[in-house]
Design a binder for these strands. Structure first.
Length: 430
RNA sequence: GUGAGUGUAGCUCAAGGGUUAGAGCACCGGACUGUGGAUCCGGUGGUUGGGGGUUCGAAUCCCCUCACUCACCCCA
């Protein structure tokens, strides 16, 4: 490459990155696994736009949330409308349900989606400005059995991708009836001991007293341990829902930890909230977070339709997943001369139609250079076409793994390749 | 938004004020014109992130800036 480089180097913008082929292979596998598993539970893909009216998130995600107040990619388009690159997915699905009257279809509705989200955050380990989520939502199912089912589904996906050592944290954040009373009690308790809290927590005492539970300072933890717990304030309905949810988790045999201080960052959650955290992920260790949001559709002016869902962070998931990409063999063409080059092109065309990956490089090389090249790029097979082969109408096929060499027509050699590939797959499955 | 750490070749790293900034790996070529991996030889590749300052002299010391990394806040 001898084109002149521009003086100013262009690079991906902060918090975004290229996913190069080797890594993209892992993404493909994780995405395929997610789709396959979700479809097994009756979920169907629903693709919503990446860009939405800004009001959608102000209303859905919550005008007071951190996401909306300081993390959105918002700009004005040429028509003067305020638009936003979605920071999360749920409001888009809710919008789509109302817009297309999907609530008139047989319920419950089950959707999934995999795609990029955008938050203007300061990047760090496990946190990016463009990141990717696997998202699922269920609408119109009140039964706590479904709360447990989505947790079990998440676990199945994690297991499939070789993720080990995860902890499932669960909680109930109550509903409109019982949560306000708890909030008031908590605020009262925090205000009473305000002088014993760190400056940061003193600020939280009024804004969001639940966050005091997360403080790392010893005295704050000690003080907070005497604060009232949400689980003691749940109304009868929420209490029953929570207990049944836990009962179904037990039924599935999924270990969990009840964490009364678990709050999700988004305002709209009701009743069930859960999080799955992994080891070795740094500070941002939640790979999956979700919960129930029974009021959201109605608050958008839609029908009274309850909802529940979770989001899994793909970057975080992949950093703890153990995925071994299956090895697919391919054929490198070693040809000598113009006539053999044409024959290679034609033969590759045939082999590809049989599902065999072929690489014909358009560079004059000697036989040694061909082999050296084939070896370097990891070819499993080398198909040799020179004068002798052209005359005979039969080619040489060398197996680069065990150095055996075969002679035959394109059809005969295709069979040899396909047979060995099949065996290879079989032995991997055992 | 706040704080800390790190920036030297595509990658991993040397050089800690003193010739023209080096090495390994990788890449390209040769030894080797019909058979790969090894070995040997050669080559490409750098405004030392950028700008300014101190100095006879700066990759090295100082300031600013940018980028990356990690942490806080918050979240996937």
């Amino acid at each position: 490459m001898n084109t002149e480089q521009p003086k100013k180097e262009l690079s991906a913008i902060k918090g975004t990155k290229d996913i190069l082929p080797q890594e993209a292979r892992l993404w493909q596998i994780a995405e395929a696994a997610a789709k396959e598993i979700f479809e097994l539970y009756g979920y169907r893909e629903l693709r919503a736009p990446v860009i939405e009216p800004t009001e959608l998130f102000e209303k859905g995600t919550g005008a007071s949330s951190d996401i909306v107040t300081k993390e959105m990619y918002t700009f004005t388009d040429k028509g003067g409308r305020s638009v936003t690159l979605r920071p999360e997915y749920t409001p888009s699905v809710v919008r789509a349900i109302i817009e297309h009257r999907l609530d008139l279809q047989p319920q419950p509705l089950r959707f999934y989606y995999i795609g990029p989200m955008f938050r203007y955050d300061k990047p760090q380990k496990g946190r990016y400005r463009q990141f990717h989520q696997i998202d699922i939502e269920v609408f119109g199912e009140k039964d706590p059995a479904v709360d447990a089912e989505i947790v079990e589904m998440a676990h199945r996906l994690l297991r499939q991708l070789g993720v080990e050592n995860v902890t499932t944290m669960v909680n109930s954040v109550g509903c409109k009836k019982c949560r306000p009373a708890y909030g008031a009690e908590l605020r009262k308790a925090a205000a009473a001991v305000k002088d014993r809290l760190c400056p940061d927590c003193q600020r939280k005492a009024e804004l969001n007293p639940l966050r005091i539970f997360d403080c790392k300072i010893e005295t704050c933890r000690e003080v907070a341990s005497n604060f009232p717990k949400i689980t003691d304030f749940l109304c009868a309905e929420c209490q029953e829902h929570f207990q049944e949810f836990l009962g179904y988790l037990d039924f599935y045999g999924i270990p969990y930890r009840v964490d009364p201080t678990l709050v999700r960052g988004l305002d709209y959650y009701t009743k069930t909230a859960f999080e799955i955290v992994a080891e070795h992920l740094g500070a941002q260790n939640a790979i999956c977070g979700g919960g129930r949001y029974d009021d959201m559709v109605r608050e958008f002016g839609g029908p009274d339709l309850c909802g529940i869902g979770f989001a899994m962070g793909l970057e975080r998931l992949l950093s703890v997943a153990k995925i071994e990409p299956p090895k697919k063999s391919f054929v490198y063409f070693a040809y000598l001369g113009e006539e053999a080059k044409k024959q290679s092109i034609a033969t590759a065309r045939y082999l590809r139609s049989e599902g065999i990956e072929c690489l014909v490089e358009f560079k004059d090389r000697g036989m040694k250079a061909h082999f050296s090249r084939a070896n370097k790029i990891g070819a499993d097979w080398v198909l040799i076409i020179g004068e002798d082969e052209l005359a005979k109408g039969k080619f040489q096929l060398k197996d680069m793994i065990d150095s055996k060499q075969y002679e035959g027509t394109a059809e005969e050699l295709a069979k040899i390749i396909l047979l060995k590939d099949k065996k290879g797959i079989k032995s991997r499955e055992e």
